[in-house]
Write a protein that binds this DNA or RNA. Structure first.
Lengths: 198, 198
DNA sequence: AACTGTTCTTAACATAAGTCAATCATTTCC
DNA sequence: GGAAATGATTGACTTATGTTAAGAACAGTT
């Protein structure tokens, strides 16, 4: 099992050389996630962050009624993870269980705390890049909130199509509906209107 | 004009001593923002991040129809800023202009790039703390998205009341409505139902 | 105190989206 | 290949929320 995409990512974004990557290799935990399988979070690792080397994952919550709400899709070269540390998950709010599972057969790199410390030593510029990554994520989430609080389902769907045309092919429609905050029937109707109305 | 809250914040969260803070002082830009005034973003500073030392600010977008959508409130000891760098604001998406203005007379600390570099030298642990801060922000935004895509206005309002009971007193209701993604009339109705239905 | 502009509430009505149920299409699995 | 599960569409009906408009409460100003 290889992680060519991760190596490529580090090369082009962090400026990793092949030898630097070889130095990092022992700290990498690769995991194969077959379609439908939930990634188990390991206790002791804070954060449980993953790099998707191949495939497609989703991050979602399940409420008390069993309804799923999809918070994020992660295709190749994306990071995904439940960032809520245990401290935040106090006894008062066991309202939502967050899960990550595979929409397609996937391969992920598990990024442990050890890994974070190691890579910062090998390539100190990683810290700054990581910060930029987090900032981008925040901008991205804000954009989504902006649409959710002020735009119609149709606008949100059209934004999704523009932003992730490739996911459109790979993600079942009912999951896109969940991501957009609409029922599958609702999204179907919106698509119908777009098709005939234009 | 002083920034006692910021000093206190650095002391308790970053472990700053008074002398360390004195070393940092020359790099701090304090600004007084009277109620209603928009913070001008300065070109050349990337990010325009602020620490709210006193008062209350809001971060919001304005769409083509002139409608405001409130993305964040920031009372004392919170950070607020437009993190979208110019690169992300490309010509294809001049859809939303983001603004920050003051809901109450406020005092903010403008955190420039210079400041970031300086503080990292004075207190290296700041980097890690900053990362945790960003992570928390992400968790927070995810929680909000979770509510927006799957909960009713009533549930969102009750969550807001639980999370920010103090803001309830300080923020006009129509702004809370905007934050929750509902019209002022809609929120008024929901509050009415809560009052009589319980 | 009267004036002006906000903010909040209330009501009647309109509409987008949810729910339920049936049908059809597609994939998966013996 | 057929059966069974899953996914998408469509229609009838319901409901939550938006829209418009009016008035009430309140704040700030002269």
């Amino acid at each position: 099992m290889e992680c060519t995409n991760f190596q490529e990512y580090l090369k082009s974004n962090v400026g990793f050389s092949n030898s630097q990557f070889r130095e990092l290799l022992p700290y990498l935990e690769l995991e194969e996630i077959p379609k439908g399988k939930i990634i188990e979070s390991k206790v002791g690792y804070d954060g449980n962050l993953f790099f998707v080397d191949k495939g497609l994952l989703r991050f979602y919550s399940v409420d008390v009624m069993g309804k799923e709400r999809i918070l994020q899709f992660a295709p190749e070269n994306w990071f995904i993870g439940d960032r809520s540390n245990l401290q935040a998950m106090d006894a008062n709010s066991p309202l939502y269980a967050y899960n990550i599972d595979a929409i397609e057969d996937s391969i992920v790199v598990r990024l442990t705390k050890d890994f974070g410390e190691k890579i910062s030593k090998i390539a100190p510029q990683f810290t700054a890049i990581n910060e930029r990554l987090l900032q981008n994520h925040i901008v991205h989430l804000q954009h989504r909130i902006n649409l959710l609080i002020g735009s119609s389902v149709r606008e949100r769907y059209e934004d999704f199509v523009k932003m992730y045309p490739n996911l459109l092919q790979r993600v079942p429609q009912w999951m896109i509906a969940s991501y957009l905050g609409v029922t599958p029937e609702g999204l179907s109707r919106v698509r119908h209107n777009i098709a005939k109305g234009e």
